[in-house]
Every structure is written in C-alpha cells, then in structure tokens.
Design a protein around this nucleic acid. Sequence first.
DNA 1: CGGAGTGTTGATATTCCTCAACGCGTGTGG
DNA 2: CCACACGCGTTGAGGAATATCAACACTCCG
Lengths: 245, 245
Amino acid sequence: MGVTDDFLRERGRGLLSHDEIAVLEGAIDRVETFPARTAITRRGDRVRESTLLIEGAMCRYLDARDGFRQLLAYHVPGDFVDMHGYTLHRLDHDVATIVESRVAMVPHDRIDAIMRDAPRLAKMLWRSTLLDAAMHREWIFRLGRLDAAGRIAHFVCEVQARMEAIGRVKDGAFALPLTQQDIGEACGLTSVHVNRTLRRLREEGVADIGRGEARIADPRQLARIGEFDADYLYLDDGPWGDTDD
Amino acid sequence: MGVTDDFLRERGRGLLSHDEIAVLEGAIDRVETFPARTAITRRGDRVRESTLLIEGAMCRYLDARDGFRQLLAYHVPGDFVDMHGYTLHRLDHDVATIVESRVAMVPHDRIDAIMRDAPRLAKMLWRSTLLDAAMHREWIFRLGRLDAAGRIAHFVCEVQARMEAIGRVKDGAFALPLTQQDIGEACGLTSVHVNRTLRRLREEGVADIGRGEARIADPRQLARIGEFDADYLYLDDGPWGDTDD
DNA sequence: CGGAGTGTTGATATTCCTCAACGCGTGTGG
DNA sequence: CCACACGCGTTGAGGAATATCAACACTCCG
C-alpha cells in the first residue's frame, strides 16, 4: 500500500494531519488495475464501495436509445469517482476506464466509520461530491448555451485546469486520451463535427488536440471561446478543501 | 414556526424520529418570503446559510455571454435549494425565485452541529446534495443527447415525478409556472422553438403545457419521447432516504 | 496481410436559430 | 375610461449550425 500512501501524502500536502492521512489510508481495502475501455460499474448496480482513481483516466456516462453515450464526467488521478454511491447505494449511470487505470477501493462501511469518527475528513469526502456537482453544472451550461467550438473549448479548459492542479501540464500540453468520438459524446456532437471543429481550432492557432494529448497554444482565446471561468473548480481552496472554518 | 413544523413532520413521515424532526426544526433560523422573479443569491457570493424551499418555485442558473441564462435546476417545495453552499462556502451560480416563495433559512453553523451530533440527519442532508447531482446528470443527458421535443418531454417528466412525490399532481395536471422563455433556458432552446415544439406535443395529444400548468395526456408517450426513467430520482427510498443500512 | 478503429473530407439533409411581425391580455398613467 | 406599453405567445420566411451518409487514408495489431 506504499504507493497509495505516497499518493495521499502528496495530495494532502499540509492540509491533512498525520492521523487523518492514516485514517484515509486505512479506509482503502485494496488497489485494483483495470484495462482500458472497461466498464467498472453499471447503472442500477448496488454498490458497497467507492473508488478513488490513482492513475489513469476514467469517465461516467449514460446510454441513449440511439446507441451513443452521453459522458457526464471525466476523471483524473486524485478524483473520487463514485463517492455518491455511498448514501445513494445504487448507481444511476455507468462508470468506465478510458485508459488502463489503477483504482483504490474504499468499502462503504469504512466511510461510515469516518463519518462517525473523523468529521473533518467526512466533510472533505462530502466536498468531493459537491465539486462533482459543480462540474456537472458547468457541463449543463456548456451543452445548453455554447456552440460546437465553445463546448469543446470549455471541456478542454476544464481538463487543463484540473490537470494543472495535479501538476500534469507541461508547456501548455497534457495527456487527453480521448478519441474524437469520445469528445463528441462529452460535448453532445457527432465525431464528424468534432473533427471539423478541432481542425478549425488548430488552424486558428488556438489548440492542437489529438494523438492522445492537448497542446494549448492560446489559453486566453480558448477560455474566451468556451466562456470558461475556473471559479467553479474551487481550486484556490486546495485539493482537499478549505475546512478551517 | 408552526407551519415549518407541520411541513417537516409531513415530509419526514415515519422516517425521522421525533428528536430528529426537533433538531431539523431547531436548525431553521427564520422563514422568509420572496417575491416572484427575484434573485436570492448570486454567483460568487459567500454564503453562511442554506435555504429550504417551503412553498413556491425556484431555480438556479448560470448567465451566458449572450444575455440568456442556462437553468441548472428547478425546485419544488421540500427541496434544499443550496445545501452545497455549506462546505463550498461560495456559490458558483445564481439562485432565484420563479413565483413568490416561502423559504426557510438554515445557518451553516447549525448544520455543523448536526454533522457533529446527528450523523443520521447529516447523512440525509448529504443525500439531498447527491440527489441534486443525480438530477444534474440527467440534465446533461437531456441537453447532450435529445432533440427539442425530447428535452422538453424529459424536463416535464422530471417535474411531474417530483411534484407527484409531494402530492401535487391531480389527474395528470400540475403547476408549472414557467414561460416558454424559461423552458427554453432550461432546455437549451429558443423560446420560438419551444413554442413550436409545445404546439406539436399538444397537437399530437401528448401534453398541453402553458398558462402556468402542465396537463399530461399521454405520460407513457411523453416518457418515451424524453427517454425518461425516474430511477435517478431515487423516489422508492422515500423523501428522506433509505438510511437504515 | 487483413481488419478494425480512428481520423479526414465531401455532399446533402435536417434541425434549430434569427429576424420580424402581430395578437392578446394586463396593468398603468393620463 | 381610454390609450398605450409591455410581456407573452404565436406564426412565417430565410439562414446558419450541425447531423447524416458515404468514401477513403492511416495506423496499429493480430
């Protein structure tokens, strides 16, 4: 469990006490590795543990009648992927990996114990579900009010901000292991239209997205196109939240 | 505070102990009445209390550059409107009334006390934010995957299900105090297109929506058009959640 | 070597938006 | 009491954005 331990220490930097890190680490039952493009849980499943993504990329989605999916969330390392399964017990959507991923499994009864014994930590877990909801809200905005370029730009800005927060952006570039089809399923567009829109963004010198990564040439312009404001990610409060008040 | 008391008793029917109802009631600082179409809190505001809608209708939204809003949620009596403000401290969107509304105000420090002293109740509050997120997810699906008729149908189905859960549907009809512009802002459509789509739904004998109410003539067909499945509302678990395990 | 998945491009169809006009009801001030 | 403005719903005509259908190139991998 050493890797998990390092991971938590790094993510908790200064905000969690030694005891709290120990409690969180103790809540992890095991770490599993799933291959790329694999469904972990399905809509309707009764869940008894929640998952913390340690390495890789995951997503959550709903299936539509026409066979396409609507992505609901994109997950980067450090995200609690389905903390909402705790309390709701049953999933209302599917969860899957995008690339091979390492995932820490946290049984719900251990979260019960945290709720009981470590209220500060409990509030952090709650907070992670609230951040999730805040992101959902921006996805609603993106789909309801923006055109194709705006939706893609907004999505890419969000992922960049979150990757930046975990130190995974180098010179404006970061891993984005999504096909154009995937991006379409995140943004409510066909893959064909995603293709044309990405080409435009590339030709206009805004961003080059493809081959598993995103290179943002003009972040300001990208944010303008996507009407993006990172406020909703509450990044100023640090990865584990501003729980001092 | 008698009205609040009755309200809580009715909503908590059998699921909350006498003590728990007392705690919840004690958390309410006061009840305020706001006129129709009034913003209660704004994006970026620091919030120190959360609001429980007792009577009326409210919504939450984000503003777009073009001056239009994107609605994020529609609230009926019994909803905690911004429980997420607790823990997140700052709002990432606006909250407003749609019609004149009575709202119970719950200071955050009293929620702290509930977290500390009444974990079962705390879990219920958490649960309300998770239900909120589940609804957000369906809104994402609606906007990303459905056409105009589907979006409106899905939205109306959701409101019907929630109104039903609080006993406010009579003969397939319920209050829906929204203009076509509002519906457009909920569904990512222009009011003109909402108008044409509502006409079609009416002419096809599916639903008649307007003049402040919705009359659902063919619920099955409406659900089919909107690819609606009420699972995500977790209504089987009762208004306060299935917290027995 | 063949096949599947992905990215790319073109031609055409459809949905939805934009702009514009008008009716109707309601409230309001003269 | 009338005149008028305003918000809302309604309808029409034309245009823009996006989907659909189809074909083909490229890469990776069995």
